[in-house]
């Protein structure tokens, strides 16, 4: 599919507006395969919108986004862009896992049924095989004993770990995390970050919108600071966080730490 030297995610000149409000004002960003890119910034900076544009939960107004070498949302034929049909879009989304701030587990299904849902419904995996795979994934996020609990019977941290397992069940080549710990009680944040840390160690390519600067420092390969729809500063998280060059980043770090 993709050449080994090209980045997993390539974002070029992406603009996005909601009505009269321009939330992304020309974003360029590369996420090399196997790396963890942490996107930070104040609320309203456009970081969540950028993430949602990558798997096309939001459409973009201009620019290009490639994932795994594939142009997202469009096909280029005869020098013109053709918007993809819904089923082609669904196929593109399969390879991209998404973890939401508010989990969005399917409340009418148990933990293991949530994890099985994608493979069985979308990939047509036989139920027995999907169940075995789901059991392994729940084991991996430390929830084997909660397989038959409904989401409402799980704590926020447990729900988020099930949500991560549900995304992994599709064997994605890219994982997107949209503020995965922001809705959690403080004592539950670490169990989710631990799962993400393990996942990064397996070489998964990850884009993480977060306020967890320690996570960015320990796990991130690249830190991207966004403010007001533009990328203000980027680089090695340890260097950027130790010596921020821009006043806006210094002000932001002063507020979150």
């Amino acid at each position: 599919m993709s050449a080994p030297d090209q980045p997993m995610v390539r974002i070029r000149s992406v603009r996005k507006r909601f009505g009269s409000l321009e939330v992304l004002k020309g974003i360029d960003l590369d996420v090399p395969a196997g790396e963890v890119v942490c996107v930070v910034g104040p609320s309203g900076s456009g970081k969540s919108t950028l993430l949602r544009c990558v798997n096309r939960l939001e459409s973009i107004d201009s620019g290009r986004i490639w994932v795994n070498g594939e142009l997202m949302g469009y096909a280029e034929r005869g020098g013109r862009l053709h918007a993809l049909r819904p089923h082609e879009l669904s196929r593109q989304r399969r390879g991209i896992g998404m973890v939401f701030q508010r989990f969005h587990l399917f409340p009418h299904r148990t933990a293991i049924e949530n994890v099985m849902e994608g493979p069985v419904t979308v990939l047509g995996t036989p139920a027995a095989q999907a169940r075995r795979q789901a059991e392994e994934l729940l084991e991996r996020v430390g929830l084997a004993d909660r397989a038959h609990h409904y989401p409402s019977q799980l704590s926020g941290g447990q729900q988020q770990r099930v949500a991560i397992a549900r995304s992994l069940a599709m064997r994605p080549s890219l994982m997107l995390f949209d503020e995965p710990t922001s809705a959690l009680d403080p004592e539950l944040v670490q169990e989710v970050l631990a799962v993400m840390r393990d996942l990064a160690a397996t070489g998964m390519t990850m884009m993480v919108v977060t306020h967890e600067m320690n996570f960015a420092r320990e796990v991130g390969d690249q830190l991207v600071f966004m403010d007001d729809g533009v990328v203000v500063e980027r680089g090695d998280p340890r260097e950027v966080l130790a010596a921020p060059r821009h006043e806006r980043l210094r002000a932001f770090l002063g507020q979150v730490q």
Binding site: N55, L57, P86, H87, S90, R91, R93, R94, I96, G97, M98, F100, R102, H104, L105, F106, E117, G118, T121, V122, A163, R166, S167, M170
Partner: peptide, 15 residues
């Protein structure tokens, strides 16, 4: 959010 989660798994509108 339920719809978005399902779409992120690659489900079609009908699914």
């Amino acid at each position: 959010g339920q719809r978005e989660a399902a779409e992120s798994l690659g489900m079609s509108h009908r699914q």
